[in-house]
Design a protein around this nucleic acid. Structure first.
Length: 380
DNA sequence: TTTAGGACGGGTTGGGTGAA
DNA sequence: TTCACCCAACCCGTCCTAAA
């Protein structure tokens, strides 16, 4: 079974899952937003960016550090990393346990202040991008690498707090009985503002409407060049002056008919398309397929995903275990398998709105290019 | 009449603090 | 160490009003 639009799908969720909520449509809408975030996150994991991701960290504006904005996902250079083996018990895996074990292994923790997050709760809920400590210029995070019999293999990695890319996921739904959607673009403006204040590569328009990029060097001289070409030049260069404070911004939006048709982009979409470096569009087909195959009508092997979703969105839920941060451990493993087996198909769920004529595979290779820069040298 | 904008309810996570 | 609690920031959907 498939749904011809996300709007229909939302109605189905209202009837089947969110009937208990005071405002069931609203609750279903929020959940759809969460799913867009989860799909984006697990695509990034499947692209091998797991250890580069932080979630909801404050990003300072370029040249204006007194204002910062929490961004959904940011990708950071890794300063150092190590693997750890710990005993699997019934209890939770806490930050302090991991830090103690690191200390035993002479992993220097100087300058780092501890956090109190649990990597794994005793209920079996995993914390994605789990921060266990932080310093002035870095985050120390931990993830589960594998489970080997009685032991769990962890990976601990320190990220430089200056990211090289940021992701934001957004969604706007259609109001009942109205064909054009919400009468506000505040959300788009908020996203656009953050996208345009994060990076050293700033956007300016010419009189004739072309988009140019300007970037200042540390001696306050600058370059101005046509935007998209300039961005590519920066990404594929080894010029410290260009890369130092450059942050690629990526927006991910999902369709609700009102936002977008191929000929007629809505104002919100136009604002976002010219503000993010990349604007991706998660299609109705993609979102529907994810919900149909993994939540509404899952095969037996995918059942833990449905279970985690349903238990997170019911009247008597104890704790959410289906968000970008909190994820049921079994659901996490099955999602990773599903994404890795169906990688090609899932990538086809995303359309590239901007830059025009570019393909998702180029985003992936640009992110890889940035990931593999010699950041130690660039950021010193 | 249509569209833009303001306000707000009900959610989420992050992060800090202090008591148990 | 753990937990409850609070605030900040952000998100989604809805309703109302003012401007075009």
């Amino acid at each position: 079974m498939s749904y011809e639009s996300v709007d229909k799908l939302q109605k189905a969720l209202v009837e089947n899952v969110f009937h208990y909520a005071k405002d069931s449509k609203k609750a279903a809408g929020r959940a759809l937003g969460t799913l867009v975030e989860i799909i984006t996150y697990y695509l990034l994991k499947t692209w091998d960016f797991n250890n580069y991701i932080s979630i909801e960290k404050g990003l300072k504006e370029y040249g204006n550090p007194e204002i910062s904005h929490n961004v959904e996902y940011s990708l950071h250079p890794i300063i150092r990393s190590t693997d750890l083996l710990i005993n699997k018990t019934e209890k939770s895996i806490t930050a302090s346990q991991i830090l103690k074990e690191l200390n035993n292994q002479n992993f220097s923790l100087s300058g780092l202040s501890r956090k109190t997050n649990n990597l794994l709760s005793k209920e079996g809920i995993l914390r994605n991008a789990c921060a266990i400590a932080e310093s002035k210029n870095s985050f120390l995070l931990c993830s589960i690498k594998s489970q080997k019999g009685p032991n769990i293999e962890l990976c601990v990695y320190e990220q430089n707090s200056k990211p090289f890319a940021v992701f934001e996921c957004k969604r706007v739904g259609v109001e009942e009985g109205i064909s054009k959607g919400p009468q506000t673009i505040e959300k788009a403006k908020q996203g656009a503002y953050v996208a345009r204040t994060a990076s050293s590569l700033q956007k300016i328009r010419t009189e004739s409407g072309e988009m140019y990029g300007i970037i200042y060097k540390s001696d306050n001289t600058f370059y101005i060049k046509p935007y998209t070409e300039f961005m590519e030049e920066i990404i594929f260069s080894n010029n410290t002056e260009l890369l130092r404070r450059f942050i690629m911004t990526i927006g991910v939006v999902s369709n609700h008919g009102n936002w977008f048709t191929s000929e007629n982009q809505n104002k919100e979409m136009k604002v976002l398309a010219q503000s993010y470096d990349w604007l991706l569009f998660l299609s109705d087909k993609g979102l529907s397929e994810f919900i149909d195959k993994l939540i509404m009508n899952p095969k037996r092997i995918h059942l833990p995903i449905r279970d985690a979703f349903i238990s997170s969105y019911s009247e008597k839920k104890v704790k959410n275990q289906f968000t970008k941060v909190q994820m049921n451990l079994d659901a996490d493993r099955i999602l990773l398998d599903y994404f890795s087996i169906n990688k090609k198909k899932i990538e086809s769920w995303f359309n590239v709105i901007s830059p025009k004529k570019k393909h998702l595979s180029e985003l992936k290779s640009e992110l890889n290019e940035l990931k593999n820069k010699n950041w130690k040298e660039i950021l010193k």
